[in-house]
Design a protein around this nucleic acid. Structure first.
Lengths: 144, 144
DNA sequence: CTAACTTATATAGTTTGGTTATATAGTTAA
DNA sequence: TTAACTATATAACCAAACTATATAAGTTAG
């Protein structure tokens, strides 16, 4: 395989910038972790807090705190885990799905101009890159 | 062009996760903004603080603060701007270049396992995606 | 069956990177 | 040479992240 150094470096620097641009979007005061979390719940279904923390790559206390807010806003629900009453299953709710959708639209309106002249080919590459990265950064295989 | 919504969403969520993994790497206490900044200086040469802030997508005071630290650690140098004595040109120093290089190696050792079975084809896609994103998120055209 | 251990989440306290608002000093133009 | 503007620095603050620890439920050894 080719040298990984510059590749990962470039990807991560680009990722960092993108993250910051996204954070700025629409003066969004919502932390990126919220979207990451909702997104995981949306694609993977209900999860325990600990697993969610691992998958979002934040500590468990951070996730607990974040969820308190999300529950408060009714973006997600707590479901008692019948098999283990210490644990909760966290599920995305209709409001959460809606918020996620709204954010996507917001993103593309905000970032649209930057990517306006994207060729179909380039879009394809980004899509595939996103898929590759998502697969590699997914902790499900280890967590499950 | 195809719908931008899901594409940007996927890319940004993936970017966020990558950023967090990178941040964790090697218990690195160094904020991502440092690498972003050094990286910009490394590829674009000496820049003013304000321009650097725009390119790193942080506020000017944030960049000023960050640079105080980097100067202290001798990763970068301040060069008086002969044309405008209010301004400084910030240049990456040998230590900065070395640190950046070390970080790259660190990254690939840490993240290597995740990307171990990357095919040449996939590596190619990531490389191209990084290039596309870098170009789009670059503010140079506007700043210059 | 209960005591010891482990595991899942919650809480407390702290650190720090980021922000906005403003001050200071230098530049430019009338 | 004064007014308006610009480049950086400082101040005060916020919030998201962490570590360490508490609580409570499950598990297991004796």
């Amino acid at each position: 395989m080719a040298a990984l150094d510059p590749l990962l470096h470039d990807v991560i620097v680009a990722a960092h910038r993108l993250t910051r641009i996204a954070a700025h979007s629409a003066g969004s005061t919502t932390p990126a972790a919220v979207w990451s979390t909702l997104s995981i719940l949306s694609t993977d279904g209900p999860l325990r807090i600990g697993d969610l923390a691992k998958m979002s790559r934040v500590s468990q206390p951070s996730m607990t705190k974040l969820l308190q807010r999300l529950v408060e806003e009714e973006l997600v629900y707590r479901i008692a885990d019948v098999e283990d009453s210490r644990a909760w299953l966290i599920a995305i709710g209709p409001k959460g799905t809606a918020a996620l959708g709204a954010w996507r639209v917001e993103l593309s309106t905000q970032l649209g101009p930057l990517f306006a002249d994207l060729t179909t080919d380039e879009a394809e590459i980004l899509q595939r890159a996103a898929r590759i990265l998502t697969a590699r950064t997914d902790t499900k295989r280890k967590v499950a």
